[in-house]
Amino acid sequence: MAGEAQADCLFCRIVKGEIPATIVRESETTVAFRDINPQAPTHVLVIPRAHYPDAASLAAAEPALAADVLREAGEVAAAEGLDGSGYRVVFNTGAGAGQTVFHAHAHVLGGRGLQWPPG
């Protein structure tokens, strides 16, 4: 069920502390940690503590929680020193877009030039 932790979800297990991660920021509703396969010098994932399979389902069910994820992405970028040079926030939604963990998450990327279009 959406919102409830899923036993087989990697990110739900990180939220519970069952799987280690390099946590850079936590709030009541979110957790931010370094990506284990970084695509930029700074690559942090910001996830809601509640389980939603993707950004679209999160936004539809809990718009305030989706806003928390975006706000925390900005806080991560500032804490990482990216707010002056620029950064990118990416939500991959669905396997065809590159989503590999089906728990909504934002990628905060920065520390190098980010070309457009991506991918």
Rank of each mutant, 00 (worst) to 15 (best):
A78F: 03
A78L: 07
A78G: 06
A78C: 00
A79P: 02
A79C: 03
A79Q: 05
A79G: 06
A79N: 01
E80H: 00
E80I: 06
E80W: 02
G81R: 07
G81Y: 06
G81Q: 11
L82P: 05
L82C: 02
L82I: 03
L82D: 04
L82T: 04
L82A: 01
D83E: 15
D83H: 13
D83L: 12
D83R: 15
D83Q: 14
G84F: 07
G84R: 15
G84M: 09
G84E: 15
G84Q: 15
G84S: 15
G84C: 06
S85Q: 15
S85K: 15
S85G: 14
S85L: 05
S85R: 14
G86A: 11
G86C: 10
G86N: 13
G86Q: 09
G86T: 12
G86R: 13
Y87R: 10
Y87S: 05
Y87I: 09
R88C: 00
R88T: 03
R88S: 05
V89D: 05
V89F: 06
V89W: 03
V89R: 07
V89H: 06
V90C: 05
V90R: 00
V90F: 10
V90G: 09
V90S: 12
F91S: 04
F91E: 02
N92A: 15
N92Y: 11
T93N: 15
T93E: 11
T93D: 11
T93Y: 04
T93F: 05
G94I: 08
G94A: 07
G94C: 10
G94Q: 07
G94Y: 09
A95Q: 11
A95R: 14
A95N: 07
G96A: 13
G96I: 01
A97Y: 00
A97N: 01
A97M: 01
A97R: 00
A97I: 00
G98Q: 04
G98S: 02
G98M: 03
G98H: 03
G98P: 06
G98T: 02
Q99T: 04
Q99N: 06
Q99L: 05
Q99K: 06
Q99V: 01
Q99F: 02
T100L: 08
T100S: 11
T100H: 10
T100E: 14
T100Q: 14
T100N: 11
T100A: 11
T100K: 13
V101G: 13
V101S: 10
V101A: 09
V101H: 12
V101E: 09
V101N: 11
F102C: 07
F102E: 06
F102H: 10
F102M: 10
F102K: 08
H103I: 08
H103P: 11
H103S: 08
H103Q: 12
H103E: 12
A104E: 09
A104V: 14
A104C: 14
A104R: 08
H105A: 08
H105S: 10
H105M: 11
H105D: 08
H105C: 12
H105L: 11
A106I: 00
A106R: 02
A106P: 00
A106T: 04
H107P: 01
H107F: 00
H107W: 03
H107L: 01
V108E: 01
V108L: 02
V108F: 05
L109P: 14
L109R: 14
L109E: 14
L109M: 15
L109W: 13
L109S: 13
